[in-house]
Amino acid sequence: MIELLSEMFSYTFLVRAVIVGFLVSICASLLGVSLVLKRYSMIGDGLSHVGFGSLAIASALNLAPLAVSIPVVVAAAFILLRISENSKIKGDASIALMSTSAMAIGVIVISMTTGLTTDVCNYMFGSILAMSENDVYLSVVLSIIVLILFIVFYNKIFAVTFDENFSRATGVQAGIYNMLIALLTAITIVLGMRMMGALLISSLIIFPSLTSMRLCKTFKSVIICSVFVSVLCFFIGVIISYLYAAPTGASIVGINIIAFCAFSLASMIKNKKGGVL
């Protein structure tokens, strides 16, 4: 095991990927709890598609991928938040519309310019090799900012997630904190997308929180448990992907599925009467 790890970490690209992946896994699992509970999981999925479109355009124009995607996805996050807050428009349908449109535009741009290169495949399915040194620095800085903001606003995020009306009524600026959640999610998705792939990044957000909600009963314990689940699944996934040359994103999701099943089983055993999943 130790030999394997030291062998893995002798590759700088792997070290970079593991550092970024580790931080992004933490961010994703923290935000995931709030997104799942607010019924905003679709936003995460929609954003990853928008992210794919913007990465495709950036690569067609030879621009820095992160520098283009982050503002585009952040803007999309605010729009999606608006849509899902405004119940008059059919929220989920509009999100689906927007995300598939972004995906389609991305595919068109790609087929007209570079064609289906490995780069493009990597955006779809993720690759651990995708990150340049500059990307790594930016990713580390941004994910640390996301972490700090989450911790600083933890109590407020809990309150607007638990009962938005009460928060508004008692003078908490719920709208601002919703936007903060959307902003942090957008950044996390763009950062994680290179490794996980546009198709799989939202699972990094959703799985750990759903998994820990099987067993944990308080908000804080769910948050802490998700972080551990997320980080553990990430490391196991990376190792498996290295050993069997499997795609990183898919391996991580695979481990997450196993963790989810294990937690579900444990919760079923714990309260034997209810076999409800």
Binding site: L37, A159, D163, M213
Partner: peptide, 29 residues
């Protein structure tokens, strides 16, 4: 300065939160 107790508890059935976490959130303002 306002405290509010809603009629229907709009809180989702599956929300993980302890009683203490819920009550303490009233102090947020």
């Amino acid at each position: 300065d306002i405290g509010y107790m809603p009629q229907t508890n709009a809180v989702q059935k599956d929300f993980p939160a302890s009683v203490y976490e819920v009550v303490l959130s009233g102090r947020l303002n």
